[in-house]
Design a protein around this nucleic acid. Structure first.
Lengths: 216, 216
DNA sequence: GTCTATAGGGAGATAGAC
DNA sequence: GTCTATCTCCCTATAGAC
């Protein structure tokens, strides 16, 4: 370890502080603009304007637009992973599935822009997102699958095609964030309210529990 | 009415034939390229190359890229509307919902590109698509809602939030077309087979019927 | 680290010969 | 109707002064 002078240390901290602050600003702004404009329509100029920075500054921190998009996606995925509770076998299927669906809806609502950017990248089959999902599915799904098998063995639910169960839960919960324009038209509202999300939650939970043969 | 000479008539028919043929070629090619590349990333040059036409020819038939996209969307929506069966009250909820879900999956599978282009336009909140949905929902949903009310009154199913029922059915069925990359990763397959779609159909139908309290 | 100025590359769209 | 050549615009990315 090379000892640092106080001067150098504080300079480094300042620099690193500015860097971190700017990067966060750029990533948050990018997420918003990407979600609003679409990935390809978004220009680095738009992001710069909205962030109040010169365009070259964006390229100083993120060499290319692709790098920037991947940084945005990485940040989204890291935050998501940290806030998802896994299944807790002891609590049984009803509690776990109810909580899972409820959290999913809350999360995609709270981070609507992040959810949209992810959906856009997924429908555009961005390599970065596909690679992430490959990883996630291998590590996580096998665990959830075991919990479900345990519950089936205990007679707490009927056997289900686990992959399709998760695919459909994701599809239903994400649609309220990603395609909210469609939801608003359907419900004939200018903006979605708490009660709309509650209704969605309740109905999705009802279908999933019933479909899994979970009565009590 | 101005009588036409035979010469003029046949010339017009020829022209109109060529026009129709080229327009169809352009629309079919565009749908494919839009679905593969994304709406904004797609260039008129790509479409021209893949259709085997000079780029100026594309712009001769469709003044702008936006016009072209709208023509593609209009064609998709016209074909869709023609192939969806409405509810038939006499047959009861089980038959109708089962058929509806089954047809939805078949259709988005058979027209995967069309489905993707539509989803891309919807997530990008293209005015053209939003206007179409506004229309569709007003005219169609009220009819389906009445059928469901009838069935509830007859004790054939439990009351459901109709809007959320349709939103979730669409979300689940569309996901197998629009986000097929995710589905493939989840099922760990290079390509989806008949059996995968059958499994999806069966599970979605099971959840919906159970959620609606339809036992027989 | 910041920012102006600009290079360099395509994009959409069209004029005009055929 | 068809297609070559070209206009104009604007995007990404960077060089280089501060």
């Amino acid at each position: 370890m090379i000892p640092l002078t106080d001067e150098k240390r504080s300079k480094d901290q300042l620099k690193s502080h500015i860097r971190e602050q700017n990067q966060t600003l750029i990533l948050e702004t990018s997420e918003r603009v990407f979600a609003r404009q679409g990935l390809a329509k978004t220009t680095t100029q738009m992001i710069a304007n909205e962030a109040g920075l010169p365009k070259a500054n964006i390229h100083y921190y993120y060499r290319s637009k692709k790098d920037l998009l991947e940084a945005v996606l990485e940040r989204i995925l890291r935050l998501w992973l940290g806030s998802v509770s896994g299944f807790n076998v002891e609590e049984g299927p009803k509690v776990n599935l109810t909580r899972y669906i409820s959290e999913k809806i809350d999360q995609s609502r709270a981070n609507k822009n992040a959810s949209k950017v992810f959906a856009m990248a997924l429908i555009g089959e961005e390599d970065f997102v596909l690679a992430f999902l490959k990883n996630l599915f291998v590590t996580q799904l096998s665990r959830e699958k075991q919990s479900i098998q345990t519950w089936v063995d205990q007679g707490l639910m009927k056997p289900v095609p686990t992959e399709h169960l998760f695919l459909t839960i994701w599809a239903m919960t994400q649609t309220y964030a990603d395609f909210d324009a469609q939801v608003k038209i359907m419900l004939q509202k200018e903006a979605l309210e708490d009660s709309d999300y509650d209704d969605a939650k309740q109905f999705i939970i009802r279908m999933v529990l019933a479909g899994c043969g979970i009565t009590e």
